[in-house]
Amino acid sequence: MTRELTCIGCPMGCRISAEIQDGKIIKIEGNSCNVGKKYAEEELSCPKRMVTALVQVQGAREPLCVKTREPIEKRLIFDCLRELEKVSVVRPVHIGQIVLKNVCGTGVDVVATREYD
């Protein structure tokens, strides 16, 4: 199987194609440097993303913005968002305050990213 990727290591944006066999990368082509190789390896083995989202605040229409403290596995993004839909926080909230612990069993906490009085 061949996977096509765009490297985000620099503005070059190399189109990288990686050949995968039995879950292992056997060939990486199209990258101009090592940054691209590393990016492709990470991206193909276990891609991770920071998730930023909004949660409800009790008694207010304006939502509270939050983020995962660390990147979580990309495949869990929508599970994470669904868990956060159920969250409703009580004011006041401070930057860095935990709104949801261990989201989707990742070990990563979701924290507030603004001051909300």
């Binding site: 920071m50 930023t52 913005c65 983020k67 930057i95 990213t113 603004r114 001051e115």
Partner: peptide, 10 residues
């Protein structure tokens, strides 16, 4: 470090 907009502003 990678911050969100509101964190950067703060």
């Amino acid at each position: 470090e990678e911050l969100t907009g509101p964190e950067y502003a703060q």
